[in-house]
């Protein structure tokens, strides 16, 4: 009789525990196949198609489609919109996150809810709001036309609509992080004699910078890609109020396949760059 207890092999124990948590092979492979199939069918194929269609008549056609004046002006307008809205919403987002996480005031939960409003209403409605406010028949319409200010069917309307749509991104990224961090580090900096401004730049910003960058990135992607709200306020004036997404639609409706997909390829490329940067930021955050 071998009465001496065998020492338990820890590796084997772990293996056994893992086995308990594992599903049958057909379940695993089935789920993987479904996920891969779905991604291929709904993401990779359309993306490939965009590239394929854009180059369907050769690189020269692609370039000439992109160098059309209307396309160039759409790209310019898209860049301008992003250039104005992203910095503004970065400042608004930091201010809102700061107010919500650092102060106690009446209506705080209302403000927190309102920040999400652009996410929860349809972009078309968001656009309509501005038409109702600033359009010819809108509340301020008369005053605006009397003073010769054009907002709707002009660049300011596009920027306003984009501002509204992209407002939540930065604040949404920062609020949970700043809530979790608390304000003791800032209090410590103040107690060491730092000014509020210095505390903000030396303590707050370094602590939130990755989340802030991530929010800015998402904000930028949406600012460049927004279609619904911008479509309502833009008026689709070629060469003047067409952003890149609108330009893609207009070209497609004109049976200009190469033009439409060339524009789409730029937006798709932007999305891919955003994803890569986002992944890099997440990796950076996790490995800090």
């Amino acid at each position: 009789m071998n009465a001496i207890a065998q020492p338990i092999n820890p590796a084997r124990l772990v293996a056994r525990q893992q086995k308990v948590l594992q599903d049958a092979d057909w379940v695993r492979w089935g789920l993987v196949a479904i996920a891969v199939g779905f991604i291929t069918l709904f993401i990779c194929v359309p993306l490939g198609l965009v590239i394929f269609q854009a180059f369907s008549k050769g690189i020269a056609a692609y370039w000439s489609a992109l160098s059309q004046p209307d396309t160039l002006s759409a790209i310019k307008l898209t860049l301008l919109t992003a250039l104005v809205t992203v910095p503004l919403n970065t400042v608004f987002g930091v201010a809102a996150a700061w107010a919500i996480t650092r102060f106690e005031f009446k209506g705080k939960s209302l403000l927190t809810t309102l920040i999400d409003l652009p996410f929860s209403v349809s972009p078309v409605i968001s656009g309509l709001i501005f038409v109702l406010l600033f359009g010819a028949q809108g509340w301020f319409g008369e005053w605006l036309s009397a003073h010769d200010v054009k907002i709707i069917f002009a660049v300011p309307g596009i920027i306003l609509a984009t501002l509204f749509i992209t407002f939540p991104f930065v604040a949404r990224q920062l609020i949970p992080l700043m809530q979790e961090m608390g304000n003791q580090e800032e209090e410590a900096a103040l107690s060491l004699g730092a000014s509020g401004w210095r505390t903000f730049w030396s303590v707050t910003i370094p602590n939130i910078k990755w989340a802030l960058l991530y929010g800015v990135l998402l904000c930028n992607a949406r600012a460049m890609g927004e279609f619904g709200a911008v479509s309502v306020v833009s008026g689709h004036i070629r060469g003047l109020t067409n952003t890149l997404p609108l330009h893609v639609e207009v070209s497609y409706n004109d049976y200009d396949v190469v033009g439409a997909f060339a524009g789409a390829s730029i937006l798709a490329g932007l999305a891919i760059v955003t994803l890569i940067l986002k992944t890099a930021l997440e990796w950076r955050q996790a490995n800090r």
Partner: peptide, 15 residues
């Protein structure tokens, strides 16, 4: 910041 005090927090609050 003007009081000339040193404050040590329960959860350290190191930067």
């Amino acid at each position: 910041s003007q009081r000339g005090i040193g404050f040590v927090f329960q959860h350290y609050a190191l930067f």
